[in-house]
Simulated assay, not measured.
Amino acid sequence: MARTDLMSRAQAGDGDAFRALTEPHRRELQVHCYRMLGSFQDAEDALQDTMLAAWRGLERFDGRASLRTWLYRIATNRCLDTLRSARRRPAKQWDIPGTEPPEPTGLGEIHWLEPYPDALLDGAITVPLGPEARYEQTESISLAFVTALQILPPRQLAVLILRDVLGFHADEVADMLDTTVESVKSALKRARAGMQRRLPVMTAREQPPAGDSPAEDAIVTKFVSAYESADIDALVALLTDDVFMSMPPMPREYRGRDSVARFFEFIFGSVERFELVPTRANGQPAFGVYRPTPTGTHGVGLFTITLTGDRISAMTRFEDTVLSIFGLPRSLVAVPPAGFQSDRS
């Protein structure tokens, strides 16, 4: 069916035609909202708002810009509304009674950060980019990059993503934001300076191995073995000297090998073993973390690791509430212990 016919039908109220027009852009719009908001759930809410606004306003779409550009305009402004309303999840304090982790080396600001499943990136970061794009698509979805974006003021954040990540022209961005080209250029200059302060060493670091490569698999295998056996020495041997660990929505941060080692000594001190279920988040290896208890093996969180060369340079621990985003269960099927015999045997 011709695109013009689909548009005519959609503008006349045909929901199927509307979905046929917008569905090819849905995944990339969700990633766009995620970059702007740093939260998977907030991005999903913004995407739903975007589609509803597009459906209600489609009769006013005049075709001067492409449908994709028009949808990005709506999505960007919905995200800006969210950022300006300050409707963000509050920071959470350590809440396990009777335990107190080691003193952190710092407190983070971006406590609403959530991971993004790689399974949802298919078709979302391979779309053709405009000529102004400066970042690799895989880099621009990394947790370090998304975290750095959250520090920027809302307008600068939007301009940098639209210009440097997606490659829209300055006049297109000005139209999306109802502002001038000069204002866009000024905001972009300040945004680039802000990102440089937050990520000054990204380009200087040794590159990580390719995803799912034998080199990455070797590091992941060592990490899983060390973590599941609570082997502190083996785990610490995998870390860079300046390794950084965060744990949103708790603001606690640990920087440096010794500091991170003390945290894991605390964690492993009360648990004999964990079980890790591999997945991927933000282009990085990730693991659902499960803890055996008398009532079963229950999910306690999700870990992502950032690799630099053959070492782990960053770790992020998320709460168990994100497991469902990755299709991971809250509990694993219990495996009977050795020597266990059913009454029916």
Rank of each mutant, 00 (worst) to 15 (best):
Y254N: 06
I232D: 06
A234H: 06
A261C: 07
S259N: 08
L276E: 11
D217L: 12
T203N: 14
K222C: 11
P200L: 01
P200H: 01
P278Y: 01
E206Q: 14
M250R: 12
L238E: 03
V236A: 06
R198A: 15
L239V: 00
A261L: 00
A226W: 04
P251C: 08
A261Q: 13
A215K: 08
R255H: 14
R257H: 06
A230W: 00
L276A: 10
S213W: 00
G269Q: 05
K222G: 08
D242A: 11
D231V: 07
A237R: 09
R273D: 13
F223C: 04
V271N: 14
T240G: 08
M202A: 15
D242Y: 01
M245N: 09
A215C: 04
V277T: 12
E206Y: 01
P209N: 03
V236R: 03
L199N: 07
F266W: 13
R257S: 13
E253V: 10
V220M: 07
S259E: 13
I232Q: 05
L238F: 01
P278Q: 06
A230D: 05
F274D: 08
V220Q: 12
R280D: 09
G269P: 09
V271E: 11
A234W: 04
L238H: 03
A237E: 14
T240L: 02
E275D: 13
I219C: 07
D233C: 00
A237G: 14
A210M: 06
F264N: 09
M245H: 14
V277A: 10
T221H: 12
A230Y: 00
F223Y: 12
A215F: 02
D241N: 11
F268R: 03
R262C: 00
P278D: 00
F268S: 03
T221W: 01
V243T: 11
S229P: 08
D242V: 05
G211K: 10
V201I: 06
D242E: 13
E206T: 15
A210E: 11
